[in-house]
Amino acid sequence: MSLTLPEGDWIRGISIRQPWTTAILTGAKTIENRPRPWRTGWVLLHAGQQTDKPALRLPLVARTIRDHRLVTGAVLGIARITDCHQDPEGAPLCSPWARMDAWHLELADVQELPLPVPARGQLGPWKPAPGLVGQVFQQLPGFRP
């Protein structure tokens, strides 16, 4: 039995540099920082071509990604953005992963793919090609949007 996915604009791609993508896939990083607000809904988690090398030295990151391979240039999983907010000025940050100067995308229902799907991403939310969506969801037969 094949999975029937919804038609239309129900999923976007989000490109994130490593090691941040892997930190999300571990389940530890539930906040993604962005300069502008995003809508809620499903996203493909795409690891961009570049690695944020200074981030590798941060203790929180190093502990989280220990023993994980940092694949780049591929879709590595999916997640659902459940909220997008900014913390009020002077209030504590909502997460140790949050930045004060950013919009915080709250991520839930993160699922890592068994195999990376090579793909090109882009800045900002991007619309994945139907073929890419099909390749991703072949690996997640139990997924129901």
Rank of each mutant, 00 (worst) to 15 (best):
residue 73 G to N: 06
residue 65 I to T: 10
residue 62 A to P: 12
residue 12 R to W: 08
residue 79 A to G: 02
residue 36 R to V: 15
residue 25 L to W: 01
residue 39 R to L: 14
residue 67 D to V: 05
residue 100 M to C: 09
residue 73 G to Y: 03
residue 27 G to T: 13
residue 83 D to Q: 15
residue 42 W to F: 03
residue 80 R to G: 01
residue 16 I to W: 03
residue 18 Q to C: 07
residue 33 N to P: 08
residue 60 L to H: 06
residue 100 M to G: 07
residue 71 V to Y: 10
residue 73 G to Q: 04
residue 31 I to A: 03
residue 29 K to Q: 05
residue 103 W to P: 15
residue 36 R to T: 14
residue 38 W to N: 06
residue 50 Q to W: 10
residue 58 L to I: 13
residue 48 G to W: 00
residue 23 A to W: 00
residue 46 H to R: 09
residue 66 R to K: 15
residue 23 A to V: 13
residue 79 A to E: 05
residue 31 I to C: 03
residue 23 A to C: 15
residue 104 H to D: 09
residue 33 N to E: 06
residue 43 V to M: 01
residue 71 V to I: 12
residue 82 T to K: 11
residue 49 Q to D: 04
residue 61 V to T: 03
residue 29 K to E: 00
residue 82 T to E: 12
residue 84 C to S: 15
residue 25 L to T: 10
residue 100 M to D: 14
residue 14 I to G: 01
residue 64 T to Y: 07
residue 98 A to I: 07
residue 65 I to L: 06
residue 43 V to A: 01
residue 23 A to H: 02
residue 30 T to Q: 13
residue 38 W to Q: 04
residue 16 I to N: 02
residue 84 C to Y: 05
residue 30 T to H: 06
residue 10 W to N: 08
residue 77 G to I: 12
residue 93 L to I: 08
residue 92 P to N: 07
residue 104 H to I: 08
residue 14 I to H: 00
residue 85 H to C: 13
residue 83 D to W: 09
residue 13 G to W: 08
residue 26 T to F: 14
residue 44 L to I: 08
residue 25 L to G: 10
residue 69 R to K: 13
residue 65 I to M: 07
residue 91 A to I: 11
residue 16 I to T: 01
residue 96 P to H: 00
residue 68 H to A: 11
residue 56 L to A: 10
residue 18 Q to M: 10
residue 26 T to Y: 13
residue 61 V to F: 05
residue 96 P to K: 04
residue 64 T to R: 00
residue 35 P to E: 11
residue 103 W to A: 09
residue 73 G to S: 01
residue 104 H to Y: 06
residue 101 D to E: 14
residue 100 M to L: 13
residue 19 P to F: 01
residue 79 A to C: 08
residue 47 A to H: 02
residue 104 H to F: 05
residue 72 T to S: 13
residue 32 E to N: 11
residue 72 T to Y: 05
residue 62 A to L: 12
residue 37 P to M: 07
residue 36 R to N: 11
residue 85 H to V: 12
residue 15 S to H: 00
residue 26 T to I: 07
residue 24 I to D: 00
residue 55 A to T: 13
residue 67 D to Y: 03
residue 64 T to L: 12
residue 53 K to F: 08
residue 50 Q to F: 05
residue 43 V to T: 00
residue 98 A to C: 04
